[in-house]
Simulated scan of single mutants.
Amino acid sequence: MSYSTKSLLLLPFLFVASAHADPLQKTFSDWQVTCNNLNFCVARSMTGENGLVMTLSRHAGENDRPLLRIDYGSRYSGALPGGSLKENLLIDQRRLNPDLKHWAVEAHHIATSHTISVDEFLAQVLDADNLQLTFQPQATLSLHGLKAALLLIDDVQGRVNSQSAWVKRGERLQVPPEPAAPTLAPPPTPAALTADETRDLIDYATWRINTESCSLDPMRREVSVSPLTDDKALLLVSCEMGAYNVIDLAFEVTRRQPWTARGLMLTLPFAPPGKSEKPMELVNAQFDAAKGELYTWAKGRGLGDCGIASRWRFNGEEFVLAEYAEESSCDLWHSSDDWPTLWVSQP
């Protein structure tokens, strides 16, 4: 969520039955759509650099919990000067006066989860060109691609020709149920590493493990070691370094001599946007031994407004994907904790 979001609406993510869906992230003109493995979809306008952004989200199934919001200003810009949104929105150069009876209203943030209010607002904007602020003409929100984005959401959630569709509405009442969230096995609870184990394994990773493909000099590599089970440990070794990302190698190694190491590969259960391969590099990796979870965070640029974040849980044998988020639009809108999700699991 963007600036001041939590003060507007707090809508819980509740998940119900059936098999997971294929995640996607696509762009239609000036709109981006992301749908995760539960068919929860988010569409937002670009670019946030203008300060004015509209976002629509919806869960699959009958309990769809729609959310429409318009924001002026983000965490990157902070609060911006100017009048209130409710009195200063233009649609194609004409004054827009939405009925805000069922909206949460702040000076620069308005939002509604009221189904009829969402439908009424979309009826006004679906075929328009743009929204604009009277006091800041440069703050323009393009509506080109909005209809295609919402039609994709309708299609993904099986709403086309149903009464709940946003674009191609029909008479059908029923829609497919929301897919079930994957269940993760609890991680092992291994004994902590002793000081001797830690020292020996770090020495082993620094000088003896096979890192011939790494460009970093051994003296500059960072090594971390954590317990996986009572017999195995996780070694993370920095391998390549860029301006704001470090690519790591991961090894499963025995905790006692003679040490044997096995390289670990993270494999996604889906092909991420724009790619055909499922293996994933460990970028800026960190392991939380208490939770048995491995985190990665690949920044698209130094500001951190775009990139990929993932969370994996060790089940005793392998790391299983728990969460994956990606923001492909570097437009000063989303920080990493708000990047749209393509994969989620049961909390």
Results as ranks from 00 to 15, higher is better:
Leu201Asn: 01
Arg199Val: 13
Leu193Ser: 06
Thr211Ala: 15
Glu197Asn: 07
Ile202Glu: 11
Leu193His: 07
Ala191Met: 09
Glu178Arg: 14
Pro179Gly: 03
Leu201Trp: 07
Ala205Arg: 05
Ala181Pro: 03
Ile209Gly: 10
Thr194Cys: 07
Leu193Val: 06
Leu201Ala: 03
Pro188Lys: 08
Asp203Lys: 14
Asp196Asn: 04
Ser213Cys: 08
Thr189Gly: 00
Pro186Ile: 00
Ala185His: 07
Pro179Thr: 04
Pro179His: 01
Thr198Arg: 11
Ala195Lys: 02
Ala195Thr: 12
Glu197Thr: 09
Thr211Pro: 08
Pro188Ala: 05
Ala180Ser: 12
Asp196Ile: 01
Ala192Thr: 04
Leu201Cys: 04
Asn210Gln: 14
Leu193Phe: 05
Pro188Gly: 01
Pro190Thr: 07
Trp207Tyr: 13
Thr183Leu: 10
Tyr204Ala: 08
Ala192Phe: 01
Leu193Ala: 07
Ile209Lys: 06
Ala192Lys: 10
Glu197Phe: 02
Pro177Phe: 04
Ala195Cys: 00
Thr198Cys: 05
Ala181Met: 02
Thr198Trp: 03
Glu212Gly: 12
Thr183Glu: 07
Asp203Met: 14
Ala195Phe: 00
Leu193Lys: 02
Asp196Met: 02
Pro182Arg: 03
Ala181Thr: 03
Thr211Arg: 13
Thr183Asn: 10
Thr189Arg: 11
Asp203Cys: 11
Glu212Pro: 05
Ala180Arg: 01
Leu201Lys: 03
Arg208Phe: 14
Pro182Trp: 05
Ala181Arg: 03
Glu197Leu: 07
Ala205Lys: 06
Thr183Trp: 04
Ala181Gly: 04
Asp200Met: 15
Leu193Tyr: 08
Asn210Ser: 14
Ile202Asp: 03
Pro188Ile: 09
Arg208Pro: 02
Pro187Asn: 02
Ala185Cys: 03
Pro179Val: 05
Thr198Leu: 07
Tyr204Gly: 07
Ile202Thr: 11
Leu201Phe: 05
Pro187Met: 04
Asp203Gln: 14
Arg199Pro: 14
Trp207Gln: 13
Trp207Pro: 08
Ala191Thr: 09
Arg208Met: 15
Pro187Gln: 06
Pro186Asp: 03
Ala205Gly: 09
Arg208Gln: 15
Ala181Val: 02
Ala192His: 02
Tyr204Met: 06
Asp203Ala: 15
Thr189Ile: 13
Glu197Tyr: 08
Thr198Gly: 12
Pro187Leu: 04
Ala180Pro: 00
Thr206Gly: 12
Ala191Ser: 07
Thr198Pro: 08
Glu197Ile: 06
Ala185Ser: 05
Trp207Val: 05
Ala205Ser: 10
Pro177Glu: 02
Thr189Trp: 12
Glu197His: 08
Pro177Tyr: 00
Asp200Cys: 15
Pro182Met: 08
Thr198His: 12
Ala191Cys: 00
Thr198Val: 12
Asp203Ser: 15
Glu212Phe: 14
Asp200Ala: 15
Thr189Phe: 13
Ala181His: 04
Pro188Ser: 03
Ile209Leu: 12
Leu193Gln: 06
Glu197Asp: 04
Thr189Tyr: 10
Thr189Ser: 04
